[in-house]
Computed example of a mutant assay.
Amino acid sequence: MKKSIALVAALLALGAPLSAQAHRAWLAPTSTVLSGNDAWVGFDAGMSNGVFIPDHAAMRLDGLTITAPDGTTVQAENQHRARYRSSFDLHLTQSGTYRIANVMGGMMASYTLNGEQKRWRGAPAEFATAIPAGATDVQATRTSSRIETFVTLNDTSATALAAPAEGLALVPVTHPNDLVKGEAATFKLVKDGQPAAGLEVTVARGATRYRDNPEEQTVTTGADGGFSVTWPEAGMYWLNASVRTPAQGAEPATNASYVAVVEVLP
């Protein structure tokens, strides 16, 4: 149970839409397209008012998962958590595209027992036995958060880009490491494997410290979960969407968020 509570606490620290906080979570690589027999990439992860500016809090990396081009899971190296950012390195030894994601999830519930209001947090698998017999006014919410980026060594590949079965996730139509200034890119959002229609996606370019205009745009997903972005400038971009669904019968409410960081080349 302690581990489950820690996971949900980490989800709260990520800046998922479990509160009204405005801080934005991000996971940014030093490079996204590399060549050679092998290469190293560094990553910073944090939460801040302006994306990619480590000035608020470091991100916990409890849910860090790195998928290699062949679909296997590889480990980060040299992990470190400072005051305002976490960091790690990734050794690229396979040609193709890597998916680097910090994925968290859990459940929260409130209920009344013997006239007292109670709260519970933990893993979804524990929920069925966690609420005591006799509890009333049970309200539960399943939470999920995915914060990710993509890196390619030599030629792009698609194996690591397969959509996960749970949570809010990106399905690339345009490869996320093949983005160019002035050209349109197309993506889809899915929730639990199904098209996520009608979601607003915020697109923000980094380096806001050096300009007055935040240069943000908002696009809305279509019936198939698809949306397109035309990149006005080269640089690192932050994409964010979230969705809440109410409880339906025995199914709890859900609260899911998604963040991707991509690089647009000149």
Rank of each mutant, 00 (worst) to 15 (best):
Y98F: 13
Y98M: 05
Y98E: 12
Y98G: 04
R99I: 04
R99Q: 06
R99S: 12
R99W: 11
I100M: 09
I100C: 08
I100L: 09
A101Y: 07
A101N: 01
A101C: 09
A101K: 01
A101Q: 13
N102L: 09
N102C: 04
N102A: 13
N102Q: 02
V103L: 01
V103N: 03
M104L: 08
M104Q: 15
M104N: 12
M104E: 15
G105L: 00
G105M: 00
G105S: 10
G105K: 04
G106R: 04
G106H: 03
G106K: 06
M107Y: 01
M108P: 00
M108K: 01
M108L: 08
A109S: 15
A109P: 00
A109C: 08
A109Y: 00
A109Q: 01
A109R: 00
S110K: 12
S110H: 05
S110N: 09
S110F: 00
Y111C: 07
T112F: 08
T112G: 04
T112I: 12
T112A: 03
L113Y: 07
L113T: 07
L113V: 11
L113H: 04
N114I: 06
N114K: 12
N114P: 05
N114W: 05
N114T: 04
G115S: 10
G115A: 13
G115C: 13
G115N: 06
E116Q: 10
E116S: 13
E116I: 14
Q117G: 09
K118V: 13
K118A: 07
K118S: 12
K118G: 02
R119A: 12
W120M: 07
W120R: 04
W120K: 03
W120P: 03
W120V: 06
R121A: 15
R121K: 11
R121H: 02
R121Q: 11
R121T: 14
R121P: 00
G122Y: 14
G122S: 06
G122F: 15
A123Q: 11
A123Y: 08
A123V: 03
A123L: 15
A123G: 02
P124V: 01
P124A: 05
P124S: 14
P124R: 01
P124C: 02
P124D: 06
A125E: 13
A125L: 10
A125Y: 09
A125I: 09
E126F: 06
E126C: 10
E126Q: 14
F127L: 14
F127T: 03
A128P: 05
A128N: 13
A128W: 07
